[in-house]
Amino acid sequence: MSSRSVMAELLWAEKYRPRSLREIVNQEDVVKRLHVFVKERNMPHLLFAGPPGTGKTTAAHALAHDLFGEDYRPYMLELNASDERGIDVIRTKVKEFARSKLPVEVPFKIVLLDEADNMTADAQQALRRLMEMYVDVTRFILIANYPSKIIEPIQSRCAVFRFISLKREDVVARLKWICSQEKVVCDDRGLESIYEVSGGDMRKAINVLQAAAALGEVNTSNVYKVVGLATPVEVRALLKTALFEGDFMKSREALRKLIVNYGLSGVDIVKQLHREVFSSEVAIPEDLRVEIADYLGEIQYRLVEGADDEIQLSALLAKLVLLGKPLRQQPQLSKPVKR
């Protein structure tokens, strides 16, 4: 058996995801209350709120697992609202599942809506009706980073659970445990730096850990190497070519390459540019950062309206070439101090 298991690998974030509430070591207050639902085999609608990577989705699955057993899948409909956020999905998929007959072996079914704060207002209204109509057979678990984006009537129908950011020592301990399971060499400074770069997001932390381990061992230099490699240099190069070199044609070629070879959509590129514009690694005068961001917003709006990726982003490049003109003319004056 061992020779087989070494042949295929999984993502550690999946492999080491707690399956049962008992395995969850953080969020003690939340977990304690969820245990009660399992014991009583009953629960209200739930709203899990908190920053990414704090265990909301994991807790929802673990709850279903503990309620319905190992094969809990048929009794739970799982939707990621940022992928399926329209009112149609609520009216068809969710409604169908919610009103379907209750199997005798379970007290209720669960609808899990991940990233529910991405749902449109219409969809939320439709959802609210379903939550009322089928409450006897179906309970909803809504997960959101920003609970304020969930409409008031839904919030008032849910028991709200707040997930707090994971503590540094909890994240580091978990990472260390995974390293011991995987027989990966790691040092504490390396694990600390993973915490730094992932900002308490456990999923991100474990992903970075796995990538660093793939480079050999988990130490500070490999962690930063991974983060450096995972930051796409092409988008930054695009920004620099247009702004600092003022070479429109070259930057447009780079743009085409991003679209064709990397399969990035216009919106993907705008979003990444937005990140780069405020990065301390790119030395742009402060007032320009704001001006570029404003224009990025305009371009993204046009793209979402259905405008052409290449033409709109070329317009952006033309703007960057123009904005960079004073920088290029007086290089010694305009070179800002790197922060």
């Binding site: 993502l11 995801r17 989705t57 994991t58 940022s82 999923r203 793939a214 995972a230 930051t231 993907d268």
Partner: peptide, 28 residues
């Protein structure tokens, strides 16, 4: 595929996971 495994949205998979997978695939 990643979203189904990690139970996250496809946009998280694209922004957080794919870049790290690229690092692994380029280096090991």
């Amino acid at each position: 595929v990643i979203a189904a495994h990690l139970k996250c949205s496809t946009s998280t998979a694209k922004s957080d996971v794919i870049p790290l997978l690229k690092v692994i695939f380029d280096n090991n």
